[in-house]
């Protein structure tokens, strides 16, 4: 079970931590907490004509949370708010057992979280960075 959850892709994504450190002058920001465990994600974002041009994050969280934030750092630039919300919905659906084989740039990284599905107490760990990003985009 531990091998399935803490597999190489997730560990690599967490270690890479793409986008870590936040932005110096973000266009919008949001901080979201997980009240169950104390994890906190701050997501900074800058947009031009509704397209994300920069994204940065500060994560106080577990491996899953860090890997999820890294996914955002890897793929969010060039996306629009509706694209991010669609990916958020895909992840939520996947964690709840839905199957969506629509290929898109995020697909490989999103599928890395599929082993989290049976661990409902860890779903929020994966979703927290996306919640923060969506809130930042709504604040923009």
């Amino acid at each position: 079970m531990n091998d399935a959850l803490y597999h190489k892709a997730v560990m690599r994504m967490a270690a890479t931590s793409k986008g870590a450190g936040g932005l110096e002058n973000p266009g919008a920001t949001a901080t979201v907490d997980n009240p169950l465990c104390g994890d906190r994600v701050t997501m900074d974002v800058t947009l031009a004509d509704g397209v994300i041009t920069e994204v940065g994050h500060k994560v106080r969280g577990c491996v899953l949370c860090q890997a999820s934030a890294s996914t955002i750092g890897e793929h969010a630039v060039g996306q629009r708010a509706e694209d991010v919300k669609r990916v958020q919905g895909r992840i939520l659906g996947m964690l709840n057992g839905a199957v969506d084989k629509t290929p898109e740039p995020w697909t490989e990284d999103v599928s890395a979280f599929e082993p989290v599905t049976p661990h409902k107490s860890r779903h929020k760990c994966v979703l927290l960075p996306f919640d923060a990003l969506v809130e930042a985009l709504d604040n923009a």
């Binding site: 079970m1 531990n2 104390g38 491996v63």
Partner: peptide, 21 residues
Amino acid sequence: AHPHDICQILDGHGVALRGGH
């Protein structure tokens, strides 16, 4: 190491531990 990851891995060993605040 984050407490949640520690406790998840310990769960795989049959150990019920608590992590968080």
